[in-house]
Amino acid sequence: MTMHIGFCGYSHHTKGYSQPKSELSSYLIRLQTEGFCEIVVNNRKMPLKKGGLLLTRPGDLYEITIAGSQNSGDYHLICKGTWIDEWWRRSEKPTFSQINLDEKLLALWRNLIVEERRPSGEEDKELSGYLLKALCLSLERAVHETGSLVSRPYPVTRMLRYIEEHATNTFKVEDVAQSADLSVSRAAHLFKSCVGKTIIEYAVHIRLSTAINQMKYTTMTLEHIAENCGFGTYPYFHRVFKKKYGISPGEYRRQE
């Protein structure tokens, strides 16, 4: 499948800027990271603030106005190709969305910008293609997780993502609650009612899965695995593992 990146960059405006109405010949993806602007797509006007995501396709009528006397920042991407066509068709792509400004997503965008700046002969089109795919898929997930059709409240999704990222490190329930801007009691109740596990139970589930993979595919000692997967000590890891699987970590490893 073909992919072509026409332009990928970041803009920061301190003065007014406007682009008159024009018909797009490629896909335009734009994410507002600070300040605000006013977008008009197919005669539908929408103000974009921090976290505002714009997804437009070839043939859309597009115009933008950025008022002066502010700091307005945005990432933008112009692209086309058969892979983008297929990605666009497979799920609903709302023109305007409000998403969480996740640092991992922004890092993907920055990496793609840098790759596209390389001089001719030094660029890696394969790498750019994978970065573009990863960015589009990450944006698709962000739109889905913040959309009205998701069965769970968005704060629960934010807590899930925080736990998944920090499960093998030491963290407190207070840290998880703070990631979703909730009190500890509200976070604990909401998480359990939506996920069916407590915050700690979900973290232990991830730690056990990680430990099993390390027992299968590495030669690390069980004590090292216990520490590496967030259990702290081997006795605690042994107790949790045996309660879950009915055998000790050592017995499990020998069976493998």
Rank of each mutant, 00 (worst) to 15 (best):
L108T: 06
L222H: 11
K244D: 10
T82C: 02
S91W: 00
I199A: 03
D181A: 12
V204C: 02
K125H: 12
Y236A: 10
L24H: 08
V240P: 00
Y10P: 02
P20V: 08
A188N: 07
I78S: 13
L132W: 03
L127E: 11
E256C: 10
M159G: 00
E251Q: 15
Q178P: 05
L139G: 02
D60T: 07
T218S: 15
F96H: 11
A167W: 09
I5N: 00
K244I: 08
R186T: 15
D60N: 15
H13K: 09
K133I: 07
Y245A: 08
S183Y: 04
V176H: 03
S138W: 03
S69K: 14
W88C: 02
G52T: 07
S193C: 06
C79A: 13
V40P: 00
R161T: 12
T168F: 07
G81L: 01
K242V: 03
K192P: 01
R89H: 15
L132G: 00
D74W: 07
L222E: 08
N43W: 07
T56M: 03
M1K: 09
D74T: 04
E174N: 11
L182E: 08
N169R: 14
C229T: 15
A142N: 05
T219F: 08
L106S: 05
K243N: 13
H189F: 14
Q255T: 09
E92I: 06
K15C: 09
L55A: 08
N169M: 13
F171L: 13
E201F: 10
P153L: 12
T56W: 00
M1G: 14
R161A: 13
F191G: 06
V173R: 05
V40I: 14
E223N: 12
R30H: 09
N111L: 11
S97D: 07
I247L: 15
F231R: 01
G16H: 04
H205S: 11
T56K: 00
G59C: 08
E116W: 01
A142F: 00
T233R: 14
A134G: 06
E115D: 05
C229K: 03
D60R: 03
A211M: 00
Y17D: 11
I225D: 04
Q98L: 12
V156N: 08
L77E: 02
I206F: 07
I199L: 11
L160T: 10
F171T: 11
I66M: 09
M3E: 13
E103G: 05
S25V: 14
Y75S: 02
G35M: 04
